[in-house]
Amino acid sequence: MSIFTDIYNTVAKFFRQSDEPVIGEASKAVAANRLKLVLMQDRTNLTPKVLEQMRGEMIDLLSKYLEMDKDMLELNFEQEGDQVALMLSIPVIRAKDEEEIEAAIAKEDTDITESNSEEDSDEDNEEEIVDLEEEIEEDVVDEESTKSKKRSSKKVSAPEELQGNHENVENMEEQSCELETQQEVVCENQES
């Protein structure tokens, strides 16, 4: 009998379609996506140095309003379909109160000439910020959280959900609140 099964298997194998996508399916897509990102950076001269500068400026800006864990800040490019998005993820410790914000703004006004000259440095970046959406999600009150000490006496009164993004719900148990700033970046390739 085994001879017959052998023959059957051989015949079946012979006629089997050899081009069925198997394990490697992801590898091509991964390569294409990684390439698109890296080429976007190559083409726009968006060097790590520039990214670091952007990171620093964003921290300065957001520090006026929020107290956050600066070391945990992440700035990444992500591919979503045809668009490349700049994802900024910062764990927020607490929102500052009005007095603090006013103080920070007042301080900035005195430094304005200094910061202006810095901002004027042309970086030749071709992106255009199309959309800036901030999403502040109020933490579910979590009495047992170890981080409760860090939490402000004033509760953040933030819009519940500006965007239907629920990805961070899980993380919220660890962080008192999570802010996700998302800047959609349209990349225009300088030459085609």
């Binding site: 050899s18 081009d19 069925e20 996508p21 198997v22 490697g24 399916e25 992801a26 590898s27 091509k28 897509a29 390569a31 294409a32 390439l35």
Partner: peptide, 12 residues
Amino acid sequence: LIKTNEMMSVDD
């Protein structure tokens, strides 16, 4: 390799 999606295709 292109058939099995292990290599980028010409179009890609």
